[in-house]
């Protein structure tokens, strides 16, 4: 039995060919993502969870180093550093909010999310009650912790799908296409 493909990577020409956005929408979407990442930096996971849709998928696939020119897939479909839906996300968030034994995050990591080169396009998948937006942008995460002088760096392209209803935006899909085959950090105790 063939399982449906677990995520879709938007190719550059696909992104370019989708309808663009207005300056007004750009401001609102950038504002939302800045707020969303600020909550993560503050470790306010309870508030952050409120920004996720009930059908959220959050996938950070394993990137594989390939020989160029052979067209071999660089991202694994069934191996990822995060592969979460709302139910497993609820486990991660309950742990972060309620546990008194978060050894990997005591002291807390200082995690800064840098967004750039942002494009956003409205998707057909919306309906009368909700618009859906594809937001593609570069991500640089700097994590420092304790009194260690060195920081962990993670660089990626994010492909988010935001859903906009009368109450505002929420995050429906997050696909993080890492630039790393081997992760240069001892853990990912923060969201990417």
């Amino acid at each position: 039995m063939l399982m449906p493909k677990r995520y879709h990577i938007y190719e550059e020409d696909e992104i370019v060919s989708l309808a663009g956005t207005t300056a007004d929408n750009r401001v609102r979407i950038e504002e939302f993502l800045s707020h969303e990442s600020a909550l993560l930096s503050m470790h306010n996971y309870a508030a952050w969870a409120d920004l996720l849709t009930d059908d959220i998928t959050y996938i950070v696939p394993r990137r594989v180093s390939r020989k160029r020119g052979r067209g071999e897939a660089e991202f694994e479909e069934l191996m990822a550093h995060f592969d979460d839906n709302a139910a497993t996300m609820a486990i991660r968030i309950k742990r972060l909010c309620e546990s008194t034994a978060l050894w990997a995050e005591d002291p807390l990591s200082r995690v800064r999310y840098h967004h750039s080169n942002m494009r956003m396009r409205q998707l057909e998948s919306g309906n009368d009650n909700a618009n859906e937006w594809l937001v593609v942008y570069n991500l640089l995460i700097v994590r420092n912790r304790g009194d260690q002088p060195d920081s962990d760096l993670l660089s990626a392209q994010r492909q988010d799908v935001l859903r906009e209803t009368s109450t505002g935006f929420s995050l429906a899909k997050r696909l993080v296409l890492l630039d790393h085959a081997v992760i240069g950090a001892h853990n990912l105790s923060f969201f990417v």
Partner: peptide, 14 residues
């Protein structure tokens, strides 16, 4: 597995 183990695993990160 991916929830519990690997770099982001809720067990393995500790």
């Amino acid at each position: 597995y991916a929830l519990s183990f690997g770099a982001s695993g809720v067990l393995e990160q500790d």
